[in-house]
Structures are given as C-alpha cells and as structure tokens.
Design a binder for these strands. Structure first.
Lengths: 270, 270
DNA sequence: CGGGTTGTGTACGCTTCCGGACACCCACCC
DNA sequence: GGGTGGGTGTCCGGAAGCGTACACAACCCG
C-alpha cells in the first residue's frame, strides 16, 4: 500500500487529476492511498468526520436514514468526486451514513488538512465548490425522480450512474442490495431488473452484473440521468486539464437538460 | 422601498442576523431590500444567477424539473437561509428553478459582491458553509422521505417547514399549489389535507390555511421533519449571537435524529 | 343579478408497488 | 456427496396513489 511520495502517477480521481501540478505536489504528502472494503462504513451519522476520501475506483453511497432503521441512498460518490463535503463546508459531520458500495482504492486525507487547504483558497477549494454544486443537483434531481418515476427507470438510472463510476462493465451487485439503494422491495427489483435483462440491456446472475447495452440502458432511464450527468460535466469545464468526462460515454442522446426556461405550471390543465 | 443605509435594524434573516456588527456594516451598503411577489421566478434553470436573496418573511422554493414539464419541490429557503447557494459555491447557475412560494421581503445582493465576500473569507462565508450543509441535509432527507413516507406525513412535514419560515400561523396556500410541491395529484392533497383538518390540526378554505395545532401536526409528520430541523439548529450553534432557532418551536418531542449509529441492514430479514 | 373563475370534495377503474411468503437453484464447504 | 446458505423468480391479497371526470360552493366582476 506504498505511500511512496515520488510518483506523480496521475490519479484516476477527477478532482485530484484536475489540480495544477504545484497544488498536487503540495497536497500529495498528506494523501494516503487506502483500500475500501465492500460495505465498509465510511462516515457514521452525526459523528465528526476524520478523513475525506477521493475515490479512485471505489464507489461510496450516502444514505438517508429512516425512523424504522431502513435507509435510502441519497447520493453516490466515485472517481468524479469526494466523500466528506461537510468538511469542505465547515460542518464536520452529517445526518446520513456513508459506506463503500463498490470496493476499491481511494485517496484519504485528514479532515484538518482539507480545512487548511480550503482556507488557503487554492484550486482544490474552487473545484470542491463546483463539485458540491453538482452533488447538490444529483441529490435534488434524485429527490424529484424518487417521487415521479417508476422503478424500472430509476433502476436503469442507478445502474448507469454506477457504471460511470466503476472501471469496467461488470460489477458486484445483488438484488437485495439494489433494493436497499432504491428504497423498494427486493421482489420489485427482481421484476424491474428482470425486464431490463429480458431486453438484453444488462446481464446478471448471483450478485454479478454486466452492462451489455449502454445506449439501450440510457434509453430505458429517465431524463434525470442526463440532467445529473450534464451537471457533473459542467463542473470540470474551464479547468486547466483536459476533461475526459465531457466527451465520454453518453451515447449521443442530445438531451437538453429539459424544458428550457419553461416556468412551473406549463402543464396542469386540472 | 428605502435603501436608506443608516439603520442597523437587525434583520429577521438568521444568517444576516448572526453576522458580527462589523461584517454587517460592511455588507449593508451592498444589500437592497426588495419585495418578492407570489410566484415570482427568482432563478431560471441553467441561467447565470445575478443576485442572491436573503429572505426576511418571503419563502422561496427550489424545484426539480421533469421531462414532462412538471416539477417537484426539492428545497425551501426562508429566513433561515439564502437563495443562491450556487453562487457561494462558484458555480453561478443551477439545474432547477426557484420562485417565491410565499410573497414577502428579502435582502438582495449582487452575485459578484457575494463572490467577493466569500473570497475575503469572513463570517458570512463560514455561515454559508454551514448553511449549505444544512440545506444538503434537507434535500437528501426529503429525497428519502419522498420514497418512503405516505402523502399525509409528507404533507404535514411540508406545512411545518413552511410554518417555520413564515411569520404567523396563517398563510396563502391552495391544494393545487401544494400538490405541485409534493408531486402528487390535487385530489390526493384534498384527501390528505382533509384528514389533517378533520383532526383539527389545520384549518383551510379557499387558498388560506391556518395551523391550529402545531404539536399535533408534528406528531402527524414523519421523523424527517425533526432530522432536518435539528440540522438547521446545529448550523447556528457556536455563532456570536444568541440563536432563537434552538429554543424555538418543536413542542418537546425528544426526537433524537433517529437510529444513533445503527448501520444499514439492521432490518431486512428478507 | 347572472355568469365566469377558482378552490374544493368525491367517485371509479386502474396501475404500481408493498408485505409476506414460498420454491428453486447455484456455489461452496464439510 | 450431501447439506447449507445466499441469490433469485414468483405469486397472492391489499394499500396507496394515479388519471380523469364531474359537481358544487365561494368569490369576483360587470
């Protein structure tokens, strides 16, 4: 697990990768590369956050907790971002819980070091601001999506978002786990995912899922996916380095982030 | 509408009220007091934000837009906060739409002036960081709530949150409007609100609603309300001024922000 | 006063999803 | 080889909420 401080070995994490060399060099010694195990709890609700994490290929879920002890995923953090936004914001804790949804590697940084860097006001602070806004969009759009869209579309969206963050087309995922993320019954996932599989969009068995038809899956998802995706792409615009996220993936759908300027109430004939 | 720069006339807005006198004096000239009309659109989706708003007694809704042109409320901003968080974060625009849900007064500040103040790193920047985190909690918890809780509980929660932000027990609100906020049919609101009225918790007629039994309404709402509320209370802890929000309202329910440390999966016997 | 508009109550059939349960099959381990 | 446990498919009755529609009452205005 080497913390060897020489290699620049440009990180897969998009935020770290977007840093100018001098910022990266400065921060590098404070960063430790760690492995996150499946289902490892990263942040407990209402506890002080000790470290923030910049995932490389790990994916972290943020959960909203319900009074009955169950939970629903409210956000996802992968190589495009950082887990620990409350530290950036100076709150140092949050109401939800965070854990590793997909195991893998991440860069870890002490909360104090991040605070210091933010006070300093460098490139990372700028990036984290934009990232926080994108994460905001993710949570807000998901909220509306949870209310309006049927499971199958939400399921497709979730798979796409995870696919974006994982390196590869295959990853570990049980129906049981997915049902917790989507906040539905396992049996409901069985039907929704079964329908997607029947259409040849995905293939899965015994906790292992493969995205077979990315474009088809995008067509099966609601527009929320494109809206969220556009916001994350925009976040990296105008940074020093090239931004692979812009040109990547989304197989040409044209999606214009929905009703351009349409005020509320353009519908409702009641 | 006086922009008379002499009076400190301590603002009702909690963020501005929590500022040390010198910060308030410095910012005061850049603030303009404006009236927000009912349903006035404050931010258009994906347009550059020109001003941020610190509501006094107005309440602003943030909407998530759906592909069919409808919308669902994803956040609410009243005297406890500021509309325009994307400016604070350096993103300058957002995917949703914002409009005045309850008409009233607000302090308006040019986006550039806020950017400048944030770069300066004063008390307002600190406060806005904590506020953004609280707003985050609001959106995230609402997201989970949208997924899990029945309309009646969500309706009660919405009424409580609006009640917290409005000055007074009576405010303007039609079922049609409420149905858009909650993302349900108007007929569904008729039933949910009717049930609350039948229990004597609220009273309404023809677009005018009165909270009759605040404690009862809290009992009728889901725990999400208390979780969100606690987060906003915490945001003001440790600031220079006394924080009326802490001691206010919530009529003694004990609510401990839910499952203290219970990891996900304490349930699911499948 | 009469007509139009707006806010509200309600009803019917329907879809989606829930709660709970059961059966099956595969992988793995003793 | 046989057991065991985890992952999956499926089925039932039922609840919540949807889409639509219609009726009525209050209010507004000419």
């Amino acid at each position: 697990m080497e913390t060897s401080p020489q290699t620049p070995d440009s990180p897969r994490n998009r935020l770290l990768a977007a840093l100018p060399p001098e910022d990266w060099e400065r921060l590098r010694p404070g960063l430790e590369r760690v492995r996150m195990e499946l289902r490892e709890v990263v942040f407990e609700p209402n506890r002080t956050i000790q470290h923030v994490y910049f995932p490389e290929d790990a994916v972290i879920s943020i959960l909203g907790l319900m009074e009955d002890g169950s939970a629903v995923e409210t956000a996802t953090v992968g190589c495009e971002g950082m887990a620990g936004v409350p530290v950036f914001l100076g709150a140092m804790q949050m109401a939800g819980q965070a854990f590793a949804q997909v195991p893998g590697e991440a860069w870890r940084m002490p909360a104090g070091a991040l605070r210091e860097e933010v006070r300093r006001g460098g490139a990372l602070a700028q990036l984290l601001g934009r990232y926080t806004q994108a994460l905001f969009t993710l949570v807000a759009q998901s909220s509306a999506c949870n209310r309006k869209h049927p499971v199958e579309q939400r399921c497709a969206r979730w798979l796409l978002m995870t696919h974006d963050r994982v390196g590869g087309d295959t990853f570990e995922l049980t129906q049981h786990f997915l049902s917790q993320m989507l906040g539905v019954r396992r049996a409901t996932v069985s039907e929704a995912a079964g329908a997607l599989q029947a259409r040849g969009l995905i293939d899965y068995s015994r906790g292992r899922i493969t995205v077979e038809d990315r474009a088809g899956l995008e067509a099966a998802a609601c527009a929320c996916y494109a809206i969220i995706r556009a916001e994350f792409a925009r976040m990296l615009e105008g940074t020093a380095l090239p931004t692979p996220l812009d040109t990547a993936r989304v197989s040409e759908g044209g999606m214009t982030t929905a009703g351009d300027g349409a005020p509320v109430g353009a519908e409702d004939p009641e």
